[in-house]
Amino acid sequence: MVAVAVNDNVFLAGPARRLQRELFAVESSVVSDTAEAIDGAAVLRAYGAVRPMRDKIDLGAARSEARGVAAETWSTAAGPVVELAGALGIAIVFALAWSADGAVDLAATGTVLVALVLMYRPLHGLARAVFGWSSGLASLDRLDELLGLPAEPLEKVTMRTDPVASLRVEDLCFDYDSQPVLRNVGASFHPGELVAITGPSGAGKSTLLGVLAGVLPPATGRMVIDGAPATRALLIEATAWMPQNPTLFRDTILRNVAFGADHPERARVVEVCRRVHAHDFIAERPGGYDAVLQEGGTDLSMGQRQRITLARALYWGAPVMLLDEPTSALDDEQERNVIGVCRAHADLGGLVIVATHREDFLRHADRVLELRDGTLIEWERQTADVLLH
């Protein structure tokens, strides 16, 4: 009987461990996706990718529930299996104890029955322990893998072919915790312009770009694109936003560049990556564009992450590019390339607005606006030339 019970435990332990590993893997994926959705909420909004991320998390949660039910079913079955083995053992003992002439050796039978009763609880505990071991081993396996690793609008972004757009803002105000950051900001931006916005740290440059991208709702004011009120759908279509801290997701490089696309255009992805000098280091990675990045893109340098997020901004062909410190982690040569990319976009009729402290960007800008005390002040070109030389 002991052999039967132990064999049953071992038989159940294999599937239990497999189910526990699958459960931990799915749960880990759901947690990671949820964390990415929280950290990258602004990018999801800017590129109309809220629905795909929500669907991905919902699917993971459903898979987690299914694996959890299966694992619990196997675990719950352990007790009854041992009880069945015990009952079978008792039946076998009685059968063996029955003599050929029909007499029963009561002393021997009683001794064996007492032994079976005493063995029942340890065997039952052994069954539970086996499942505990399976769960623990699955947890350790997953831990080893991890330690070894270095209210929402649902509009969807679409490819834009017309690069021309103008942008006008009127009386924009934005507060953080009742503290005014933007105060009645008004400005007009025209097709073909490369505009630099500068100012001290904490002045609100990133906030202004976030408002222009539609990821931060202004307290008051309005925005107009090509003469039309800037609705949420229009902002997603007309603007491409690159935040100061590059946001990458646990997905392939291809899908990170073509973020929000159901079916990424590989040729387009390669094209924009070549333009920002990202193609070479991507091609050198095992898997190339199909390589899956670690959470947050932590397996890339900051400069590489910046170039991939800039490629993302170029991918959809949005006429208005909003770039927040796009060259802060790049060397002089790479910065000149980014300036050239921005200049080329403007020369095609696009509008580029860059928040930056870098002097090269300020020199090459058609206009320089300084954000000071919550308002925009335009530098005279002559003043800018004097300050930057």
Rank of each mutant, 00 (worst) to 15 (best):
N9A: 12
V10A: 14
R18L: 12
R18C: 04
L19V: 04
V26A: 11
E27W: 04
V30Q: 05
I38H: 00
A42R: 10
M53A: 05
D55Y: 06
K56A: 08
I57H: 00
A62K: 08
T73Y: 10
T73S: 11
S75P: 07
E83W: 12
E83H: 11
L84W: 12
A85W: 02
I90W: 04
A91M: 14
A91Q: 04
S99C: 01
G110V: 06
L118Y: 11
M119F: 09
R121K: 08
P122F: 00
P122Q: 02
L123H: 04
H124S: 15
G125D: 05
R128Y: 09
R128L: 13
A129S: 09
F131A: 05
W133R: 02
A138E: 12
L147G: 01
G148R: 03
P150Q: 09
A151M: 06
A151G: 15
E152H: 10
K156I: 15
T158Q: 15
R160T: 13
R160P: 00
R160W: 11
T161M: 11
V164G: 01
A165L: 10
S166W: 11
R168W: 07
F174T: 00
D175F: 05
D175A: 06
Y176V: 15
D177E: 12
V181N: 04
V181Q: 03
L182C: 03
H190I: 06
G192P: 15
G192R: 10
L194W: 13
A196I: 04
T198H: 06
T198Y: 03
G199Y: 04
P200L: 07
G202M: 08
A203P: 02
G204P: 01
G204C: 07
S206H: 03
G210Y: 04
G210I: 09
A213W: 08
G214M: 02
V215T: 14
A219G: 14
I225Y: 14
P229M: 09
T231K: 01
R232N: 11
L235T: 06
E237H: 07
A238S: 13
N245P: 00
T247H: 01
L248K: 02
F249S: 02
T252L: 00
V257K: 05
A258W: 15
F259W: 08
G260C: 08
D262H: 15
D262S: 15
H263E: 14
P264T: 11
E265C: 04
A267L: 14
E271L: 13
H277I: 05
A278V: 11
F281A: 08
G287R: 12
Y289N: 05
V292A: 05
G296L: 02
G297A: 12
T298G: 08
D299N: 14
R305I: 08
Q306R: 03
R307C: 08
I308C: 00
T309C: 06
G317W: 12
A318N: 11
V320I: 15
T327V: 07
A329N: 10
R336Y: 04
V341S: 06
D347A: 15
G349I: 05
L351C: 10
L351H: 13
L351P: 13
A355L: 00
D360S: 15
R363P: 00
A365R: 02
D366M: 10
D366W: 13
L369N: 07
L369I: 08
L369E: 05
L371S: 01
L371M: 03
L376D: 02
E380K: 10
